[in-house]
Computed example of a mutant assay.
Amino acid sequence: MLGALQVQHFSPLSGTGTARLAELSDLPVLSEIAREAQGVSAEQEFRAGLEIVLRGPGLDRP
């Protein structure tokens, strides 16, 4: 829960850190991924992370 709150308030993928990564022309793959990640809301990020935790290690996605 604490991690989710920190992400929501300090560093969501839609935040300024991701925007800075999207501007990196010398790292085109990272830049492209960051541009795509900017569209992920804090809630989407939380739910995806929670799904990974609940699924457990070694289990494939459905």
Rank of each mutant, 00 (worst) to 15 (best):
E43D: 11
S25F: 01
D26T: 05
L21G: 01
L27F: 08
E51I: 09
V7N: 02
A22Y: 04
G49L: 08
P28A: 06
Q38F: 09
T18P: 00
Q38W: 04
V53R: 06
G39M: 08
P12G: 03
H9T: 09
D60S: 06
L30C: 03
I52Q: 13
S25A: 15
S41G: 12
H9Q: 14
L54S: 06
R35H: 10
V7D: 08
S31I: 00
L50H: 09
T16M: 09
E36R: 11
E23Q: 15
S31G: 01
P57R: 14
L13S: 03
T18E: 06
A37Y: 03
A42N: 00
L27R: 14
P62I: 08
L54F: 13
L59A: 12
S14E: 05
R55E: 07
S31K: 00
R35I: 03
E45A: 14
E23S: 11
S25T: 15
L5C: 13
V53D: 02
G56D: 12
L30E: 02
G56H: 10
L50G: 07
R61S: 09
A19L: 07
L2M: 12
Q6W: 06
L54A: 15
E32K: 13
E36N: 06
G39E: 13
I33N: 00
E45Y: 10
R47P: 03
R61F: 13
E43N: 12
G56K: 05
Q8G: 01
D60G: 06
M1W: 09
Q8T: 09
V29K: 01
A22N: 03
V53S: 08
I52V: 15
G15W: 09
G58P: 06
R20T: 08
T16H: 08
P28M: 06
V53H: 02
S31C: 01
S11V: 10
Q38Y: 11
S41R: 06
L2E: 14
V40C: 07
R47S: 12
I33M: 02
S14P: 04
G58I: 05
E51R: 15
V29P: 01
L13A: 03
D26A: 14
V29M: 02
L50F: 15
L21H: 07
E45F: 13
E45C: 07
